Structure formats: structure tokens, C-alpha cells
Simulated scan of single mutants.
Amino acid sequence: MIFNHFHDAYLYTLAEVYHKPQFYNQPRGNRSREVLNYTYGIESPIERICYVPERKTNIIFNFAEALWYLSGSNNLDFIHYYASNMSKYSADGRTLTGTAYGPKLFAYGDKRLNQWERIKEVLREDPDSKRAFLSIFDASEVLQLENIDVSCTIGLQFFIREGQLYMSSYMRANDAYRGMLSDVFSFTFLQELMATELGIEVGKYYHNVASVHIYETDYVQTKTVLSKAKQIGTVPAYPFPPMPLKDNRSDLQVVFEYEQQLRQGTITLKPVDIDRLDIDDYWKQVILLFAVYQSIQQKKVIDHTLYQKLIPLYQMLVQQKWESYFSIIMEEM
């Protein structure tokens, strides 16, 4: 199946796995519904989110996870700040192994291979190449039940076809309700970033999963999302902003610096501070999201001055995710 946006692909997948499961099973004791060998494509990978309000898409975590990968870090403290439940996957309380894709991208194996730069070289040397494969799953990972953090993603493959960058992801397993939401966001974000570094347009994205499943703990939420989706149709309320058509690496470094300082609490930012940054507006919006999140984490409120500077799409997503905080804002206005 080919869909225009991830929104459509996500809802279709939820319905297929929930209503037409191929198997009922309970890996590691967790009851689930499962479909094997599942594939779909997305015409416009930039449209990488679900718009159903009841799904409460966490746009801040989505950007944080993609940037965590791009930072090359496996440190728990980075991603734990945005999703505290990630700590349960860490064996030593400090790092993550299977879940942390960054080291696989930029320092793979004993040779610490920078796969990101290598596949760029492959595609520049031979634009028609079928060798631009980025490995994530490591055969040395412990597969026994003692290890809760095994890489779900086998790898990502890039193709230049008719002047556009196509990408295929290959996953051994994907949680349709939870994991797919953040995985497709991160993978298509990487696809778009690679396209800007190669100076070409973004082509289609293909999602290939050996085992796509929904756990019993998410059955009620799945039914709610599918029910509410019928009321909003398939057209996104606002388009997702495209990444600047340039080499974004210098802007990304600024984002990394400010993300770390906001996360560690060494700075606070006002809208004027972000406006003054010498980076594209696209990346200023990402820093704004992290600044909004700092106010949520530290003060348990939404900083209204920062929130008002977000583009309408991000405002909508933040309000959907942290709906209870906005009653406080309305009382203060």
C-alpha cells in the first residue's frame, strides 16, 4: 500500500493489526495481536506525524529522539529527560545499547565506522547504487530474555532514483501503536536530512516490518484513536514544515548546543534570544519546542510567550499533548 502521508499509513496499520491480526501471541509474557511481513510506502515522507488529537503526538520527544540519534550518543540522560520510561531499557542506568541508534550511525563496531558519511560517498560515486545500506542491528547483541534492549531496526537503505532520495527501513519488529509513531518520524527525518546534504529532493519512504504488533495494554487506546480518526478525515490540519534546502550541519550544531544547555538547566531562553540566533527558522522552531519543554519540566507550566512563537502546527500538537496545562493559561489570561 502507498499512502500520501504517515497519518493515513498509521491509521490503516492500526486497523489492520487490531481488526485483522494474523496471530495472537505473548512474547516475553506480553499479550499482543500480530501481522507478519508488513509493508507500506509514503509519497510525502515530510508529512511524518499522526494528526488525531486523541493520539497526543509528542512532537518534542519526536525531535529529541531524532537528534539523539544524530548526536551519536548512547547516554540515557539525554533521552530520559524527554521520556523517563526509557530508563527501564538500560542495564547499567547510564547507557542504552539496542535503542541507541546513534553509535550505530556514526561509530559502528570495533572500527567505529561512520556509516552516515560512507553511504554519502557511495551515492555520490554511483547515484544508481544499491549498496547504500546503513546497518543498525548488531549480530553480537544478546537475544536472550535477560536483555530487554535489542535493536528493533535491522537497517536503513538509501536510493537515488530520478533525482530524488528514496529510503527503505527494515525492522525485525515494530509496535504499531507506540513505536511506529516515533520510528517513522526519526527515519524520515534522517531521510530528509540526507537529501539536503546530497542536494536533492526527498523521494518516497518505504516501511518494512517482519512483525508488526499491538500489545494488549494499548487495545483501548487503539480503538479510541481509530474511532476519533473517522471524525477528522485524512487531510492534515497543517502541513509539516520542510527542512531548509541547504547543508544543515552548522545549524544542527547550534541546536545540539542549546538542547543540551536547556536540558541541563544551565540556561533559560526568551523568544528574543531565539530570534537572534543565526540559524534558519526551521531550527529556531525546534529550539523553541525544547524551551517550552523546559518550562514544563521545571515549572510545570507552559511558557505562553514561547508557545505563541511556535508555528500553528506545533502549537496544536503541544496543546494536544499537554492539554491540562492550558486551563492554567486560560485562567491567567
Rank of each mutant, 00 (worst) to 15 (best):
N208Y: 04
M86I: 12
R161C: 02
F290P: 03
T222W: 05
N30L: 14
V301H: 11
R124V: 04
I49M: 02
L190I: 07
V272K: 14
P21R: 11
D218G: 10
P239D: 13
F61I: 07
Y82V: 05
Q260W: 04
A195C: 00
A176D: 02
L226A: 03
L226I: 13
V254W: 00
N114H: 08
I59G: 10
Y206A: 01
R124A: 02
P244N: 04
G199Y: 00
K20W: 13
E331P: 00
E259H: 09
H304R: 12
L226V: 08
F189W: 08
E34D: 10
L14R: 07
L105T: 11
G72P: 09
S227N: 15
V209P: 05
L310N: 07
R33I: 07
P236G: 02
V235T: 15
F23H: 13
F137W: 15
P53H: 09
T97V: 13
P45S: 11
T234W: 06
D138P: 06
M86V: 09
G265M: 00
L36N: 14
V209H: 04
N37C: 12
I232V: 13
D278H: 10
L313T: 02
G102E: 03
L252K: 07
I296Q: 03
L105I: 13
V225A: 01
L134H: 09
Q231E: 15
V142E: 15
Q285A: 06
R55I: 10
C50R: 06
S71N: 12
P21F: 09
M86G: 07
Y38S: 08
A139R: 08
E259T: 10
S71W: 07
L277W: 03
M171W: 02
A195Q: 00
A237E: 10
R276I: 05
R118T: 07
L181T: 14
E259L: 08
D247G: 06
D251A: 06
V52L: 07
Y293N: 09
V255W: 01
H304T: 13
K223Q: 11
G203T: 01
I148V: 14
F137H: 13
R28I: 12
A132S: 06
N75Y: 13
Y82M: 07
I160L: 01
A66P: 01
A291C: 02
R178P: 05
G199C: 05
N25Q: 11
T99S: 14
Q320P: 04
T196P: 00
D275A: 12
L96V: 12
T153F: 04
R131H: 09
S129E: 09
V254D: 00
G102K: 04
M316L: 15
E16R: 15
L113C: 08
Q298K: 14
L306M: 07
V292F: 04
M316G: 04
